[in-house]
Structure formats: structure tokens, C-alpha cells
Design a protein around this nucleic acid. Structure first.
Lengths: 188, 188
DNA sequence: AATTTGCTAGGACAATCGTCCTAATAAGTG
DNA sequence: CACTTATTAGGACGATTGTCCTAGCAAATT
């Protein structure tokens, strides 16, 4: 009994297209064309377009959790882990340059659409926020750990938005460097 | 010969709806319904929807230029002027809470749509960037004036994005306070 | 009053949207 | 093999999209 891969392929392709083109601007036809499947076939796997979005968000949440877990294995100190987050701007530059931050742009769009899945999408932010806060707590900043987490989060969002607008890689790299330096000198 | 106000009303309403709902998600019908005019009437004033967007961007550019000029009149020192910019997050909080930053969200959306007017929209960013840079130059930071301008710009974008996602007014206020303090202590 | 011009309402147009139905095929089970 | 289930293709559906045409009203000018 081989599990049908179609459903996963739809989620995968929808994930990519939602990121590249936005949720509202991506149609069933777009996804179907990429997968060479029939448009009418969607209904067997998903009831509505919103259901696809829901699955995409869940998939992103899961992938993010795995990534954060991987970072904890790869980096032994809290500072090194936080830097993993900051380095995303360099690691994923090719995509960020064209499409911005996957989390920020999705939440922004769903907010404007007044979409029912907005709270679910915002959980992506919360995931990073809690994880960063935990790292700052381990760093010995119990009192303002959440504030620092929000600061790092806001920093990355701002840089991603500007780097996207100006397509300025040097700016992004420079900001990452500055932020890492700030972290190195923080708390001694 | 009374100038026809319809064209200006269309721009005005489109401006507001593009901000609240996004460009792509706002239809001719939406704008027409708000103004109680016929949908077919648009063609007399604008050839295409993209033309409306173009006019909206131009209107925003003009309004921004006037605002920056007003700030220069109202604030006598460069630091006071830069603070005017930072305070926007508090001043326009009611809107930012729901719709984010008008500039950032528009540029992000047009980037995803691969829209021809994206460069025009990005000029809104450039307007603020150059103005902030000028203020930092007057502050005596000739060498890194542009870098500082980008930093302030990125900061505001990040805070706006997060404040929108978490609907957190206290966070926004706190960040404004921190940023103003940073500015006060900068360059002595 | 007659005529031109500025502006508008209403609807037609093809295309596309998300949704949903049905018939046909593929896969799995007895 | 027959039979049930899982999956798919293709297209119909009503609604909505941006665009565009035309007839008619309103206003200004002659």
C-alpha cells in the first residue's frame, strides 16, 4: 500500500507558489499546471483552497520545528543558536531577494485578506519567538528574554523587507554582521 | 468650470482599499461600491487597473513629500525630525495594527505579483531613505548616513510587521521609546 | 434654443476564479 | 478472475474579474 504522493506534492507546490506569488494570486490552475494534474482532481484531496493553505501552514510549522531542533543539535551555545537564526538572511538570500520572508509576507497578506487562517500563520512567528526567548533565557537574560526575542525577530523582518525592496545583498550581509557583533558583545 | 472630483475620489478610495485589502484583492466593484458609482464609469478616468495603481503611488509620493516638508518646518533639529519618523508607529497605530506599513506591504505585494509598478512603489522607500540620510548628514554622520538611514528604515519595517502580527501596541510603543533613546545618545 | 462637450450608467464581453459532479481508470483484495 | 476501493481527468456551474462599448444625461458654450 504505497501512500499517494499527490497530496504531498500539492502541498509542496502550493507552499512554493504561495511564497513566490502570494496566496491570493495563486490559483488551482497554477498549481495543477506545475504538477501536470487535472484541476478537478484537487477536490479529492482538499475541500477548499483554504484547506490547502491550512495544510501548507501546518507543513511550514513542522519544517520549522525540525529546523529549530536541528539548530539545537548543530550549535552548542545559545549565542551560536541565535546566530543560526540571524544567518538565515544569508543562507536563503536567493529567495528572500525576490520574495521576502516567507513568514512575514504570508502573515501580512492574510491580515489584509482578513483570512481565517491568519492566527495559524502567526503561530510561525510565535514558534521563532518562543525559541529565541528560550535561547536568551539560557544566555542568562530571564527578565527581558522575550523583549530580546522580539527585537531579533523585528530586526530580521525589517532587513528582509528592505533587502527585498532594494535587492541589496551587501546591505543584508552587513546587517547580519552587525547583529552578530551585537550579540557577541551582549551580556559580556 | 468645476473640476471633476470623481477621478480624485477614485484615487482616494483606491488608495485606502489597496492599503486595507491589498492591490490584487481590491476589485473595481469594491471601489465603485464605496463611491456609489458605476463600474463601467472607470474607463473614462483610467484605462486599466494598473493606471489606478500608478496614480495611487504618485499620490502617496506627493503626500509623503509634503509630510517630510512639514516635518522640517515643525522640527528644528535633525534628531527631532528623525523622531518624527519614528513616532509614526504611534501616530498611525490604529491603521498599522490592522494593515501594517503602507509602504512595506505594498512593495512586498507588488514584488510577489511581479508588477510593473514595483519600481515606482519602491520610490516611496527611497524617499524616506534619502530624507533620513539627509538628517543624519546634518547630524554630522556623513560617512555612514545612508547606513543609519537604512537601519532606521529597517527598524520601523520590522516593528510594523511584528506589531501587525501580534497586534501588540505596548511592543510598538516600547520600541519607539528605545529607538528614540538610542538616537538621543547617538553621536553624543 | 441649439449644439457641442464632459461625464456617467448599465451592461456585454471573454477570461478566470473556486467549487463540484461524473465517468473512467488504477490499484488492491477476495 | 471478479469485485471493491482509491484516484484521476475532464468538464460544467455560477460568480467574479478587468475591460470595453454605447446610449443617455448634464453642463457649458454658442
Amino acid at each position: 500500500m504505497t501512500k499517494p504522493a499527490t497530496r504531498e506534492q500539492i502541498i509542496e507546490t502550493a507552499d512554493r507558489l504561495f511564497y513566490q506569488q502570494g496566496f491570493n494570486h495563486t490559483s488551482f490552475s497554477d498549481i495543477a499546471a506545475q504538477l501536470n494534474i487535472s484541476r478537478g482532481n484537487f477536490y479529492y484531496h482538499f475541500q477548499t483552497k483554504d484547506d490547502i493553505l491550512q495544510s501548507v501552514i501546518e507543513a511550514r510549522l513542522e519544517k520549522t520545528r525540525e529546523m529549530l531542533k536541528r539548530w539545537e543539535e548543530e550549535a552548542s551555545t545559545p549565542k551560536a543558536r541565535i546566530k543560526k537564526y540571524m544567518q538565515i538572511l544569508n543562507t536563503n538570500w536567493d529567495k528572500i531577494q525576490y520574495y521576502g520572508c516567507p513568514v512575514g509576507t504570508l502573515c501580512t497578506e492574510l491580515a489584509k485578506l482578513n483570512h481565517a487562517s491568519l492566527p495559524e500563520a502567526n503561530r510561525l512567528f510565535t514558534l521563532f519567538r518562543n525559541w529565541l526567548r528560550e535561547q536568551f533565557i539560557q544566555l542568562g537574560c530571564e527578565e527581558n528574554a522575550d523583549e530580546l526575542a522580539m527585537q531579533v525577530l523585528a530586526w530580521s523582518q525589517g532587513v528582509a523587507t528592505l533587502a527585498n525592496a532594494f535587492a541589496d545583498k551587501k546591505f543584508a550581509q552587513q546587517e547580519v554582521r552587525k547583529m552578530c557583533n551585537w550579540l557577541d558583545n551582549y551580556n559580556k
